[in-house]
Structure formats: C-alpha cells, structure tokens
Nucleic acid binder design. Structure first.
Lengths: 207, 207, 207, 207
DNA sequence: GATGAATGAGTATTCATTCAT
DNA sequence: CATGAATGAATACTCATTCAT
C-alpha cells in the first residue's frame, strides 16, 4: 500500500511537471512565436533546469508537437460534443459557434497557436505533424459538413455543397475570433454568437 | 545627355536588381517561412553577393518589411479599385470577391505570406510593421464596411453593424482562399466566386 | 552464524553486481569507445539504476580505470606465468607468444581496449592511470627482456640489446593480433604462433 | 593582370588559412584526443573566429577527416617512393624503414594521430573514413608485400607468406616508433634503423 | 541500499552582419 | 561599388553527477 502510494506520487509529480512545462511553453510560443523562444527560456519560465526539460521532450519540435496535439485533441473533442449535443440542426450550429468561442476565450494563447498552425502557414515543424494537424482539421470540417447535410435532408438548410457550407461557417467564426484576439475590449464575445448565427443562416440581403 | 542616360540606366539596373532580390525572398519566405530562410540563401537565389543584398536592405527584417509593404500596397490598391469600380453595392461586392481571388491565384507565394502576416499570428518582425500592417488591414475593412453601409442606406443590405458585415465577408473569402491554397485541384477558384457571393448575401437557410 | 552468512551473501552479491557492471562497460567501451558511451548506457546494459552504478564507481573515469587495471593485472599474470613456466629460453618465448594470443582470442573486446590503451594514444583518462598502465607495460617488457638476456647468456640468442629484442617480439605479436582483430576469418590464430616464433627467431633472410 | 593577381592572392590566403587551421587542429588532437578538443579551442589556437573555422570545414568530423586524409596521403606517397627508389630488395627495405622513421620524427603529433587511427581502435568518426583509412593502410601493406615477394623470387628472402612478412616489418617498425614516441631521449632514431633492419632480416637466434 | 528525477556546465553549429579589398 | 571572408553572439542539445525519497 505504501509502495503503491509512493509510486503513484512520483508519477503524479511527473505529470504535474510536464503540465508546468507545457504551460510555460504555450505562453511563450503564443507570445513570441516558435523561433523566438529558446529552450532555456521555457525551462526558466517553468522553473526547471534545461536538462529536465529535455528529459520530458526529446527536442524543441517534440515539445511543440506535444503542445499542439494536446490542444487540438481537446479542441476537437469539445466541438464534436457541442455538435452532437442537440439533434436539431440549427441548435447544433448555435452550440458549435458558442463552444468554439468559449474554448478560445478561456485561453488567448491557445487561440494564437491555433491560428498560427491552422490558418497562417506554419513553418515551425519540419514534417509530419503539419499534415496530422491538417487532417484533424479536415475531419472537423467533415463533421460539421455532415451536420449541414442533415440540415439539408431535413429541409432546414438550403441545398448546396455541405462541405463549403461548413467552410463558410468556419470562415465567419474565425474572422470574429480574430477580431476579438486583436482587440478584446471592442469585440465582446457574448453578444456576437447570435449575430454570427444570423449572418451565417440568413446572409446580409434584405428579404 | 550621355551623363543623364547613364545615370538613368544605372537607376533602372538598381531597380531591377531590387526586384530580383525581393522576388527571390518572396519565393523562399513563402516556401519555408521567415526563420527558415537565411540571407545567404536569398542572395544565392537572386544571384548576388551577400554584401550586395545588404547594400539594398539594411537587414533581414528590413527586407521582409519591404516585401510585405509592397505586396500589401498593391493588394489594397487593387481591392479599392474593385470596390469603387461599380456604384451598385451588390456588383461592388462581386467585384471585390473576384479581385481578391484573382490577386492571389496569380501568386500562391503572396497568399502564403498574406495569411502568415494577417491571419496567423506573425512573429517575424520585432515591432512596428506588425502594427502598420494591421492598420492597413483595418483600413481595408473600413472601406469594405463603408460599402456595406451604402448598401444599407440604399436598403439593399439588411440593417446591422457594417463593420461586422465586412468582417464576415473577409472571413468567408479567406476560408475559401485557404481551401484553394491547401488543395488547388479540388477547390477551383472560378466556380466559387458566385457561390461565395450567394452564401454571403443569402445565408444557408431555406426561405 | 546466520549473521555471517547474510553478510557473506551480501558481499557475494555486491561482487557479482560489480562484475556485471564491468562486463557491460567492457563491451560498450570496446564497441564504441570511451567517449561514445554514457554512464546511463552502461547502467542500462548492466540492468542497474544510474545511482547504483555510481555507488560502485565514483565516476566514469574510475570505472574505466577499474576495468583497465583488472584486465591488465590478469594479462600480466598470465604472461609472467607463461614466461617462467619453462626454463628453456626458446620454449619460454613460444609459451609467451601462445599465451598472449590465447588471452586475447578469448575476448575481442579486451583486445580492443588493450590496443586503445597501449598502442593508440589513449586520451580517455585525464591523468594518472595512463602512466600507471605504461609503467606496468614497461615492467612486462622488462620481464621479457630479462628472458632475452638469459637467452644471450646461454648463447641461444644473438648478442644485442635485450630490451629492443623484447620490443621486437612485442611489435610482431601485436601486428599479428591486429590482423586477427581486423579480419578474424582470414587470419587464423592457431597456425600463426609457429610462424611468429620463426619470424622472430630466424628473420626473413635466406641462409 | 591586376584582376588575376588579386584573385590569386585571395585564393592563396584561403589556402594558407586552411593550413593554419589544420595545423592547430593537428596539435590539439594529437595532444588531447578528438573528444577532448573543442571547435572553439581549435579556432582560438588558429586565431580565427569559430564561424571562420566552420566556413572551411562543415563540421568537426569533416575537419578531422581532412586532417587524417591529407596526412595519410602524404605518408603513403613517401613510403611508396622509398620502396621503389631502389631495385635491390634489401636496399628497398632499408629505405622503407628509414623513410617511415624520418616521416614521423618530423612530427610527433602526426605519429600520435597515426597510431590513434591505425593501431588503436579509433572511435573518432562515425563511419566511412575509418574504412577508407584501413583500406589505404592495407594497400600499403600489399605494396610492401609485393616487395617481399620480389625478394623471394630473387632468392634474397626466405620462402613464406609475403603478406605476413610485411606485417612483421610493420610490427617491428611500429614498436620502435612507439618506444621513441614514449621516450624520445632514450630511444634515438638514427641508431635504430640498422638494428631494425638486422632484427627483421636475421632474427634473434645465434647462427 | 537502490532508485531515477533533476541539475547545469559544456559543446557543436548556425547565421545575421560587417568591412577590407 | 560589388564582393565574400571573417566575425561572434546565440541556441539546441548531451551527459556526468548528485541527492531526496
């Protein structure tokens, strides 16, 4: 029993330390960009020696990848949940917009990295992850597209290419997130969700 | 006369050389990212000595800034022209969408840099340009917003915040450009312009 | 009694563990060289924790020294035995050649280290051992030289400097060992012992 | 003409600088061993900045290889010349012994590296050169062996395996070089050449 | 006594920038 | 005025060693 407790404490410690390092890295990468952050800086901010950092991540790229993957995984989990919480198509779309906004408003840093990796051309990693991330991103779009398809089948949404409808929603939400990122005071999040939904569903034309 | 001709020839040469250097830099930056391109590489690709490169641009950042500024200037000139070519609001919006697409389809490299600088969090330049570019970007949005405002005044567009309407159009067009950038064969540009216009104006709801 | 048994078992264990560590170190050092082997690697191969390794040897150099010293001690014991087993000079020389060959053919790894330390300029240890090893090596040469001297006194060997005669025998045997080390299949050991003896004693000239 | 001169001066400078760097590296590697010498140290001793060193050699291994290859090439050229200067077999052998001794007595450092690379197990380079050097070494032995063969055909040397005869000569000369390396005062070079020749040709037995 | 997480000095290497020719 | 050799600060990464549990 004592043995087990001891072991589990060590493992807990390791996990906690890993989180501290990833948190420090997230802040720094988001603030200054991959290439303007040194491993020493990350170690310093996390209050560990450089060697300790390297005992957790085999190199800088590996650390960055871990960060992106964990972030992306959680992000997609949350969006999927939002999308499938409601059976009603319009409600699902509303949940999606709200969940996306909420996820990022909790962490500006995460949003910066998300944009850097998915919208801006990312040159931070040699190979592999880049494609992985893009694939995950595309999967998300496909899920969204299938929601759109369902809406069409139910005659709630206009006929058309569900993929491009999903792309459109992505584009609008990203644009608003970007506004908020640039000037959080001016562009309040709460009031925008209904507006985004309205713009996406009804467009700008007078009826 | 001879003197003058000589001088003007020299100036022409310098200008041409400058363009060659910027072109080399554009290709490399777009392909590999600011931090993964060395000044030697740019000089090599442009077929000049490193010292010559430095006689044109005082440092790497300066070269990058020149590239971005020239690109952005032309981009905004073209978009403004498109926006004010037609008095009719809906026609103007169509022109805008088409001009934006055309500008970038001529140069994937330019599009990559545009995304890197405006959408992805750019960490390529220490300070200054970043804000300059954002300001220019915002000016563009304001121009677009004023077109939207005109549309509202003419009862062509629904009442609402013209700024966010502009943001919405930006978001949708960027999303489609991004699709094309990722997979140019799948997402053809020509057929998408009307679809974008339709999605922006009428939304996705069945009437 | 129980107490004593326990203690002696513990001591036996420690000794066994020490041997396991030294064996792992020998293999690795011989295969990759002192500087290309890490303490973690040795600990891993010996299946001990790094701290345990350090409880047996105070540092890397110390471990290496222990290895070399134990190897050298046994080597010299065996060669001395061979040299003094036979009273007859020529027989003694034959025994020496055979013993040297046999000692190393049992362990290629040992031979690699032997060469690294005695023939190649060794840069593995800061100071101290280097000289110790050289002294031991010289002692061995002196023993061999005294055998040569006895041979001269008995008019079996040609007059000359017995030291250089010993050096000559060392050189020839090492050269053949080296051949074998490089290409064990081509250069068989058993058949070479008489040849070495003949070359050393009679030279290459026709009579 | 002026143009040409200028250019050639630059090239001369580069060549001279390269030699200075290699000379510094030779001294340091010979004194302390590959792994105990840092690139900064070499650059410092050669009185260049670290970057300059790297503009001449793409990495540490490359610098080391250049050193070894140039040394080995010259060494083998000199030995080949010595071997084929005289038609008479015994004279050729004498020349060989003398040339080998002379080559190294000019540069203790070179001898240290030669031993480190050819006799001691070298672990300084990952792959490739190692085998190259061994092949060159073997070529040399084969040349020596063919001289031995000629001696046998002319009934000057005893019948036997010419390869092993060459190996024997190598062994003896190396052993004496090693003595000299260890204690240059005690083991004078000039007086040893005839002794080596005598020991190799006639052996140690009384007639 | 064994363990392995943590440490941090040390090292190879890159690349923006300068300046003598 | 173009050239490219030289510079050296900066940075990713390793590994011998320690010590709390």
């Amino acid at each position: 029993m004592v043995e087990k407790k001891k072991l589990s404490r060590r493992k807990m410690d390791k996990l906690r330390h890993r989180h501290q390092m990833l948190a420090a890295a997230l802040d720094l990468f988001a603030a200054k960009g991959y290439h303007n952050v040194s491993m020493h800086e990350i170690a310093g901010k996390a209050e560990f020696a450089i060697g300790t950092l390297y005992s957790f991540f085999k190199n800088k790229e590996d650390l960055y990848k871990a960060l992106i993957v964990e972030m992306t995984d959680e992000y997609h989990r949350i969006l999927s949940d939002a999308l499938f919480k409601e059976n009603d198509t319009l409600a699902a779309i509303g949940e999606y917009i709200a969940a996306k906004a909420e996820f990022f408003t909790n962490s500006v840093a995460t949003l910066r990295l998300y944009f850097a990796e998915t919208r801006g051309a990312s040159f931070n990693i040699k190979a592999g992850l880049d494609q992985d991330i893009r694939n995950l991103y595309d999967e998300m779009i496909e899920k969204l597209a299938s929601t759109m398809k369902r809406g069409m089948d139910r005659k709630v949404l206009k006929e058309g290419d569900p993929y491009y409808m999903a792309v459109t929603l992505e584009g609008i939400t990203n644009a608003f997130l970007f506004c908020w990122l640039e000037d959080p005071k001016r562009h309040l999040y709460a009031s925008n969700v209904p507006m985004i939904k309205e713009l996406f569903l009804n467009g700008c034309l007078t009826k």
